[in-house]
Design a protein around this nucleic acid. Structure first.
Lengths: 373, 373
DNA sequence: TATTCCTGTGGGAGCGCTCCCACCCAACTC
DNA sequence: GAGTTGGGTGGGAGCGCTCCCACAGGAATA
């Protein structure tokens, strides 16, 4: 085991190419103030020796590590088996590759002060990270406030409850309104909403949108049934199993995410009910897996990978170029109409495009661009 | 933006608690050679100031970063939407938390020299990482050889083709043999195997096990149909759709993973065929999602999370305590018999326990313990 | 009482970079 | 020909830790 052999450093490369340490450093950092002759000479040595500067030393000198964190609240550990989250993570990875950053995965119990402290000590105070992406935002989250307090670069996936933080999101409320509207237009009258965890802003927004549509149709929101659970297939399965066996079962279900919607389809099938004839189902997310279920799921498509990519992209610029005002960006979502809602045609798009621009509660503005990444 | 204000360092803490830099460092590192009086005094200052040592400086001095990488071959980008991989990642995360390490996610094109080089420069030569976990192993992978050459701590999830590398695995061949055997015992005669990517050792092992069982039953392996594809639900769906419409369709399918098996069930349903009456289906992995499909999937349960946890645990000790001989560990797998194979009972376990110990091609030995993590 | 030992503490060097400042020397200006 | 640029280069300091060595001083030993 020769692990402990001394590795090359700048000094060595300098000696080997007959220049000084500083010049080698300049070549490594693409400083234009190096003559072409010297540059090529150093570059040759660099490639021959396969040299790469020590990350720790570089960080120590530059106060930058090139690492960003992707934090999920521990409550959502099941995120890792969630197809939506997987796509989000993929988007974040692509974004970090583009920005030449490394992505560290971490779980933090955002409701537990000790856990938050531990995260802060290691990652923020210890300057382990340059910035952080928060995978989802829970009400009363102590993390965001603390990050703001410390002026530490961060980006939320999904807005915060006060809309004062940095975030990338889609207009969940508007999208849910349009999806519910679509069911109402079909003539369904007993529509149940399968909602997500009640402390997740995203879930609440979709719930609000659902109620908006109910109200607009002239119905009393108080008479409408909403069931909460995790954003999981099993949850959708179990809730629907129970709902369909009620005395007065729903004729339509709007699920707050596709996993639950697929679970709902499974449950209907289990009970021998037809989708959409006995019960229509609409989901949210448009995960890849939908292709395999019959009837195909009508759902809201949200650009989960773009959400991740955009968040990392913005974070990256925030790291080098701190912003004093909150950076908030809205991406577009759209209703994808397939068979599960009772539409006879398939694979077409309704006119329910929820644009980042017009659909945003903020109206048009520099922070509300539609970003196609 | 007060980002650039000077942060506290050891010197400051030393001054504030009336001791030297060295002593503070000792307290931080739990060095026993500090008197209790001094220790408590320093600790108080430490908590009051919420001080945490700078990670980069520490790394520079200790030659250790506390970061390990989780590398997936880029070919398997879809891994991120794979429930099996999600559980593996979760296991790795748990392991790193236990070992007080950070986990960095990365994708490397293992078949592309430039990509491998880039990874090496940044992460290995640049000492960005202390060690690396390889999420799956592709035949002819240039990564492992290079890691060995550089004496860099690594751990494979799944064995390498020569069995010379460090790895954690289950005995895929034996497990697949038992699963196939089970189908043969049921009297199925036209069994088709849905295999994974042909350059993935895991897929090949399962294929070998399938052929072992075929051969043992006195059949000619050459007459048996094997279809290759990705470890995805859609693949299983499409392959099975085609298979079942053949002139002489299979009466049983052994899928190399559950995602494909579920896809196969979906396809059978699409064509109005009954599982298991028209076609029996057996999977591999025992992912959580199986609970929702009817009939419930007979499958091989492998401890994916333990695989990840164990790999990280071993890697962690390898980092502090380099080993000269390959570290190879086999975990147990077992056949879970449910309805999809045609067994009338459900949720019971067959006697097909594939233990790490006896089942391993290596026989018992220090590297072949059954680890229950 | 003198010597050795041991525990606890302080200080200096060093980890491998970046960045600032000083400097050199050719090319220009007047 | 003296003075002034300015591109290109080198050297020193410093980033914030750890680790080794030196050393003080009380306890144990002779």
């Amino acid at each position: 085991m020769v692990r402990e052999q001394r590795r090359l450093n700048l000094e060595d490369i300098a000696r080997m190419s007959g220049v000084s340490r500083s010049t080698v450093s300049r070549v490594l950092n693409d400083d234009p103030k190096v003559s072409d002759a010297v540059r090529t000479r150093v570059r040759t040595v660099l490639t021959e020796t396969r040299f790469h500067p020590n990350a720790a030393a570089r960080s120590l000198a530059t106060h930058r590590t090139g690492i960003i964190g992707l934090v999920f609240p521990r409550v959502f550990t099941m995120m890792f088996t969630d197809p939506w989250a997987s796509v989000l993570i993929k988007g974040c990875l692509e974004g970090s590759e583009r920005a030449d950053l490394s992505l560290v995965h971490m779980l933090v119990s955002t409701d537990d002060q000790a856990s938050v402290d531990r995260f802060f000590e290691r990652s923020v105070t210890g300057r382990h990270l340059d910035g952080v992406i928060l995978g989802s935002h829970v009400l009363g989250d102590k993390l965001v406030a603390r990050l703001q307090e410390e002026d530490f670069p961060y980006m939320l996936i999904g807005r915060d409850e006060h809309r004062t933080a940095n975030f990338v999101d889609i207009d969940n409320r508007q999208a849910a309104r349009i999806a519910t509207q679509h069911l109402i237009d079909h003539g369904y009258r007993r529509i149940v909403h399968l909602s997500g965890p009640p402390d997740l802003v995203t879930a609440l927004d979709r719930q609000d949108g659902f109620f908006d549509a109910i109200r607009e149709a002239g119905n009393d929101p108080d008479t409408v049934q909403v069931e909460c659970g995790y954003f999981e297939q099993v949850t959708g399965f179990e809730l629907t199993l129970r709902l369909l066996q009620q005395p007065d079962p729903p004729d339509a279900i709007f699920a707050a995410d596709d996993a639950m919607a697929i679970g709902a389809i499974q449950a209907a099938r289990e009970l021998g009910r037809s989708v959409p004839n006995d019960v229509a189902i609409v989901g949210f997310d448009d995960i890849d897996m939908n292709r395999m279920y019959r009837p195909e799921l009508t759902t809201v498509r949200q650009p989960s990978d773009a959400l991740g990519r955009t968040a990392v992209g913005i974070l990256s610029t925030m790291i080098t170029n701190p912003s004093t005002t909150p950076v908030q960006r809205w991406l577009s979502a759209e209703l994808i109409v397939r068979g599960s809602c009772g539409c006879s045609f398939s694979n077409s798009r309704a006119n329910g495009l929820v644009q980042g621009k017009e659909g945003s509660p903020f109206g048009p503005g520099p922070n509300n661009l539609i970003v196609q990444t």
